[in-house]
């Protein structure tokens, strides 16, 4: 609540679940089960994880074939080379799109997502329709996202169920010869790294 910024109103009052979260957190701190600064610290960690990190990984892989090979062999280790630490026990498999293979990621059981390198997933990724249909009719799902896939291209849908997370390494679009790493990174969207979109040369903000 920021009383200095706007007219305070009853809508600023926290809801039931926000109250529950605050109460649980305070009780855990009082009982010395967690430290008083740990949540704040972890929020800083989480806030620092955005699709911009994944975009840098992709851009580097496009420009540096040896990095690309290391990335495909061990996604987590390659990200850690760039300082993208993994604060949990998950591994990362990077899925390379080619002219003949298009990858898509989903979690049908819950909402597993490569958070250390992409940040928080969008709501649609966590909601039922995507999770129900991505494994059953990926072509229709991709078409809904405006990404039709040719019949002769194989679609691989990766469903996360264990400790591995996925990141799609999209195809580098044509017409980007001579682009710098930053220019390439600015083309890569979050949705391209989930696999529901392709990367094109129209520059836009990271989504």
């Amino acid at each position: 609540m920021h009383p200095h910024d706007h007219t305070p109103s009853i809508d600023d009052a926290p809801g039931y679940y926000a109250i529950m979260e605050t109460a649980i957190r305070e009780l855990l701190v009082e009982k010395h089960l967690i430290g008083p600064e740990e949540i704040r610290r972890q929020i800083e960690v989480l806030d620092s994880r955005t699709p911009a990190l994944g975009a840098k990984v992709v851009a580097k892989a496009w420009l540096d074939p040896e990095f690309r090979a290391r990335l495909l062999a061990n996604g987590r280790a390659a990200c850690e080379e760039l300082g993208i630490t993994f604060y949990d026990d998950t591994q990362l498999i990077v899925l390379e799109n080619t002219d003949k293979i298009h990858n898509l990621i989903v979690c049908t059981l819950c909402s597993c997502y490569p958070r250390p390198v992409l940040g928080s997933p969008p709501d649609w990724y966590k909601l039922n329709p995507y999770r129900a249909r991505a494994v059953k009719e990926p072509r229709k799902v991709l078409a809904e996202f405006g990404t039709p896939i040719e019949e002769d291209v194989e679609i691989r849908v990766s469903d996360s169920t264990a400790a591995v997370r996925y990141l799609v390494l999209p195809l580098r679009p044509a017409g980007t010869e001579g682009f710098s790493e930053d220019e390439l990174a600015s083309l890569v969207t979050r949705d391209a790294m989930i696999g529901v979109m392709k990367v094109n040369t129209v520059r836009r903000n990271i989504q």
């Binding site: 059953k136 194989e154 849908v157 169920t161």
Partner: peptide
């Protein structure tokens, strides 16, 4: 854990996409 490959047409009767489309799952 093993990363397994299963063709989608073996999972869904009447699968309408390509025969090479597949699932990958641990």
């Amino acid at each position: 854990y093993y990363r397994l490959a299963i063709p989608l047409r073996e999972l869904w009767p009447g699968y309408a996409g390509s025969a090479s489309d597949g699932l990958r799952i641990e």
